[in-house]
Design a binder for these strands. Structure first.
Length: 899
RNA sequence: GGUCGCAUAGCUCAGUUGGUUAGAGCGCUUGCCUCACAUGCAAGAGGUCCCUGGUUCGAAUCCAGGUGCGACCACCA
């Protein structure tokens, strides 16, 4: 029985109802034993601290489009949802909460801190999941994972231990990036470089023998306290004689050597550079090459160490100020100039990162990167758009060892224990820290005591980089290290959908770990989407205050409208400027579809046999089926190629410009003005084509389509959700090309007549007469077939086909669909206006004709262009010639009337 | 410094392998409350496809150079 639909689509109620219904039905719950080729996606797990933002909305919309499409198309799909513990980000949030209460984590202790964080996590963790559900994401919610789940933690430990056993994880003492605010080491990519305006200070270092001085230039004068050399270029004539001499450092009084190193840039500053191996990555390397001493003058909390002498205890920034002041007063500072430089900042708290000497755990990445590079080179994993593979290669090929230990509490604790009574076993001493006497035990199970002396052990205090566990996500979520049916079935996953900002952090790590531990790539495809920006192209950020809340947009425009807009704007790899007008336009699109359904339901006063709508009927019925077939092909091809924008455009055009604008109008004639049989076929076609179109659209607009599909007469009512129904296949749709071209001709004619009416300012209510002539028999036959439709759609009163050679005078003339159209003007309009219109039209035709003629006159074109192109050009030219001739005749007749 | 991307209508953007009359949405103009829809219908105006050169019968599309944006990477103190 036809349902009553409200006059306008109100998404809110429909969406909330369906979101719940899908979950109640468990439509997206994956079953290992389900038939069909496997298709799987693992969600980029949002941070538990997260709020759904537009980036998530985009990311998850695209994944959902793919999953729904594949599921409908018969694949055995799995979309694994979950969240990331986000070690450092979450810890910072909780620490801020503590600070608000005047506490810090050390005050409450590790255990309490973790308790509190877990508690908070169970409070806010479900929030983002609920938001994903609201977005319509058809994840398998029974398989939700969290990176600190028991299973995933076991995977983390397994990986750590295996890497350790294979010599790919080691402890080393070296220069690392240290965030003084977060109090932890960071990996190279966790440091962001910010351009700032600083100074270049020129300092005078006296030679130790008192024979003179050298001037060094530095952007960080406070580090001079830790200088252990100054360096010049070996080929620099100015300083060649000084190499091997010593300078005496101001303040600390230490004598340090003048060394020669290729790395020094002779052009920069004075050509003499101070070397601080403990606080600068370049200097660290130079120090290594020359066996220099390393003096740490900045401590982990950002204050100066005892080695900084009189500055000990001062914050590094204050120390710099003091030193500059004092150097200015004592003549050490000889010059100050402004200097632009990039300083490293912490990606989580934005404070300035210090290079410090520290003992940390590192992953040896070269042996992991090589197979990961090969897998993309040989196409086992493909990037879309392809150019992102270049970014991936560039990073992978110059990868450096990955510092994975963090001095944090929230995260996976490093499975290493120390016995301070037993000596280190050979080969397990930290690199770069000779003479360590501590025995290290790395183990899958928590050890009960030292295997050497049986004595107590202390576990490493540190946790792992959060990206260590996310790097395992594609297989840890499927049950690895166990050999599970899920892993066998759905790994490798089909596609990873992500933003380019985490190619290094995440994609690269998953590739390395995936290949190392499963022997296979973690995903076949990587679809990299752009960033969602505001309407001015600015990145959305809290600090800029231009963040749009997706939930607000959902409330205003509807989820489907937002989803459709995001997909439609997702041209391969381009950023999205989100314009509210666009979303609004797609809200109208949803409303348009809603009203098409209303129209159908209003007319569905009889039982509808869907099968009867799949063949036969009028030309219009056949035409819309043919158009549907084309749309199906296009949408499928677009989705297969991750061209979401093309899929959206095709759907929009088909539903609005073809189905609603033309077919619905044409169907009215059959519904209201013909026999029962024709009427019944048209009704069935309306329902059948619309039903297919809803299925075709479903991945993009799941709520609206599910609601309407179930309201249609004749559909399988026992199917509880549209995602369980098959995706349309072009081969299931009849394609009658004859009918297709006849209706195209009809459309051309109606357009031409409407155009003419409009140009002549004829009121739509006013009927006009139409005389038609043509030398094209087929065109005339066609016209006889669809004449009635022309009369209705263009408001024609009399319609007559002229005899051979007979042409009316004083008529407006148009040429369309191979037909000459004459509309007598007597008493209708101003003849002069029509004459002008004709003249303009003739000009236009003449221009096109000239273009075509020039090509055909060109010998090279005729000789070298392919046959079909030449034929096309010929056809065009002759058509234009005929048209021109006609318009000219029409013009002449008009002039006669005028005269 | 290196690498990558982008430049098309007033605005936001499409335009797969070179051959279209260069498209869409919004905005604008004109006319319509036509029995699904005014979140609508019909019609229209609006473009040196950034510049220069090259390849080609043919370039918005391919190549080179330039200009202007944007992003990423980077150890020039």
């Amino acid at each position: 029985m036809p349902k009553e639909l409200a006059k306008a689509y109100a998404p809110q109620e429909v969406e909330e109802r369906w979101a719940k219904e899908w979950i109640r039905l468990g439509v997206s719950t994956a079953r290992v034993e389900a038939p069909g080729e496997p298709y799987s996606i693992v969600i980029p797990p949002p941070n538990i601290t997260g709020q759904l933002h537009l980036g998530h909305a985009l990311n998850n919309t695209l994944q959902d489009v793919l999953i729904r499409y594949k599921k409908m198309d018969g694949y055995s799909t799995l979309w694994v949802p979950g969240t990331d513990h986000a070690s450092i980000a979450t810890q910072n949030v909780v620490e801020r909460q503590l600070a608000a209460q005047g506490l810090d984590r050390h005050a409450i202790g590790r255990e309490k801190f973790l308790e509190r964080t877990f508690a908070w996590r169970s409070e806010v963790g479900p929030y983002i999941i609920a938001q994903l559900k609201r977005l319509g994401a058809s994840c398998d919610w029974t398989r939700e994972r969290f990176t600190m789940d028991e299973g995933l933690s076991r995977a983390v430990r397994e990986v750590f231990v295996r890497l350790y056993e294979d010599g790919l994880i080691y402890r080393g003492r070296r220069l690392i990036n240290w965030c003084c605010r977060c109090g932890t080491a960071l990996s190279d990519i966790e440091v962001e470089h910010e351009d700032t305006q600083g100074h270049l200070w020129h300092l005078r270092y006296p030679l130790a023998d008192g024979s003179g001085h050298v001037v060094v230039a530095t952007t960080r004068p406070e580090t001079m306290l830790g200088d252990t050399a100054v360096a010049v270029h070996p080929a620099d004539e100015r300083y060649r004689a000084l190499v091997g001499e010593r300078v005496r450092l101001p303040v600390v009084g230490r004598e340090v050597p003048i060394i020669a190193d290729e790395h020094v840039d002779r052009e920069f500053g004075s050509g003499v550079v101070k070397i601080t191996p403990a606080h600068d990555f370049d200097d660290f390397e130079i120090g290594r090459r020359h066996g220099l001493e390393m003096v740490s003058v900045i401590a982990e909390d950002g204050t100066m160490t005892a080695a900084a002498g009189p500055y000990a205890g001062l914050d590094r920034a204050a120390a710099r100020e003091r030193i500059v002041e004092e150097f200015a007063a004592t003549g050490v500072l000889v010059d100050t100039e402004p200097h632009a430089l990039a300083i490293g900042t912490c990606y989580r708290c934005r404070s300035v990162v210090e290079p410090l000497l520290s003992t940390q755990w590192f992953v040896r990445t070269k042996p992991l990167a090589e197979p990961a590079i090969a897998a993309v080179r040989d196409g086992r994993t493909r990037f879309h758009p392809e150019h992102w593979s270049k970014t991936y290669f560039a990073w992978m090929e110059s990868i450096r060892d990955w510092c994975v230990s963090r001095q944090l509490w929230w995260g996976h604790r490093i499975p290493a224990w120390y016995c301070d009574r037993c000596p280190a076993e050979p080969g397990t001493e930290p690199e770069g820290a000779a003479g360590s006497t501590t025995r290290v035990i790395v183990s899958r199970e928590d050890p009960t005591g030292c295997p050497g002396c049986g004595g107590p052990l202390r576990q490493d205090e540190d946790v792992l980089d959060t990206w260590f566990s996310s790097g395992l996500w594609p297989f840890s979520t499927l049950g690895w290290p166990d050999d599970t049916p899920e892993l066998r079935k759905w790994y490798p996953t089909s596609v990873l959908v992500t933003g380019f900002d985490i190619i290094f952090f995440w994609v690269a790590r998953m590739m390395m770990f995936g290949l190392r531990f499963t022997g296979e790539v973690p995903f076949r495809d990587v679809y990299v989407h752009g960033l969602v920006r505001d309407e001015y192209g600015e990145k959305m950020s809290k600090t800029k205050g231009n963040v749009k809340d997706p939930l607000e947009l959902l409330a205003t425009y509807g989820t489907d409208a937002l989803r459709f807009t995001l997909a439609a704007q997702s041209a391969m790899g381009r950023d999205i400027r989100l314009s509210l007008d666009r979303i609004d336009g797609n809200r109208s699109f949803a409303n348009k579809i809603w009203n098409a359904a209303r129209f159908i339901l209003m007319n569905a006063d009889q039982a509808v046999d869907l099968a009867a709508g799949r063949g036969g009927g009028s030309d219009a019925d056949k035409w819309i089926r043919a158009r549907l077939g084309r749309a199906v092909d296009e949408v499928r091809a677009a989705l297969d190629g991750y061209r979401f924008n093309d899929a959206a455009t095709t759907l929009y055009r088909f539903l609005w410009n073809e189905f609603c604008d033309w077919y619905v109008e044409l169907s009215k004639m059959s519904l209201y003005g013909s026999g029962a049989e024709a009427r019944s076929t048209t009704l069935a076609t309306l329902v059948s084509v619309f039903e297919s179109a809803l299925r075709l659209l479903h991945p993009l607009m799941p709520f609206l389509t599910d609601e309407l599909w179930h309201a249609l007469p004749g559909v399988a009512v026992e199917t509880p959700a549209l995602v369980l129904v098959s995706y349309p296949r072009a081969s299931d749709v009849e394609r009658d090309e004859g009918a297709e071209s006849r209706v195209e001709r009809l459309i051309d004619v109606v357009r031409a007549l409407r155009n003419l009416r409009s140009e002549m300012s004829l009121p739509p209510s006013r009927e006009i007469d139409l005389f038609v002539a043509s030398r094209d028999r087929v065109a005339l036959d066609d016209l006889r077939g669809f004449g009635g439709a022309v009369r209705t759609l263009a408001k024609i009163g009399r319609l007559e086909v002229l005899a051979d050679g007979e042409r009316p005078s004083g008529s407006a003339v148009a040429v369309a669909g191979g037909l000459e159209l004459y509309v007598p003007l007597a008493g209708l309009i101003d003849v002069a206006a029509e004459r002008e219109r004709l003249e303009r039209e003739i000009d236009r035709v003449a221009k096109d004709l000239a273009l075509a003629t020039r090509k055909l006159d060109n010998e090279d074109f005729m000789r070298r262009a392919p046959e079909e192109i030449v034929a096309k050009e010929r056809a065009k030219a002759s058509e234009l010639t005929a048209k021109q001739e006609l318009l000219r005749r029409g013009l002449e007749r008009l002039r006669e009337v005028e005269a």
